[in-house]
Amino acid sequence: MKQSACVPWLMAGWVGSSVLLGCDRPVAEAPVETSEAMVDGVAPGDIEWQEGVSGDGTWMVAWRPLVLNLPVSEPFSAEVRLARADGSPTDAGIKVFLDAEMPHHGHGMNVVPRVTRRGDVWLVEGILMHMPGRWELSIDVIDGDETERSQWTVQLER
């Protein structure tokens, strides 16, 4: 990772007003076993999970980038973990889709990241936020005919 491409970044989890109650049970408890020992020169154990709850409270979702600082216009990977808020098991058919959007610009990323499930962790590769500014990073959990989103604000500065 080129140091020059690393920028300060700020994040704020966003949860719906009706779903805050579920937040006390962490999805990802440290230390977390990760599928990758080192990614982009970073030990994943050093990176904090960002935790949130999906919009209707069905899912507790956590993610973390596998870089220390989110880069502008450099691809990076992330890991996602899920748990049902009611404690029921997460079935095998669940799909995860990570995306990022700049709503004030009316566009998102130019690429679709690759998501592969590795046990309890979904590895998301090829996230590319190509402009500085405010991005809304979303993780959609697709459960058959229902899709539910959790969302974070990511501010990429130049």
Partner: peptide, 11 residues
């Protein structure tokens, strides 16, 4: 690799 993943994901 990283570029291959990006290229496969081009919208």
């Amino acid at each position: 690799g990283r570029q291959a993943i990006l290229s496969r994901g081009v919208k």
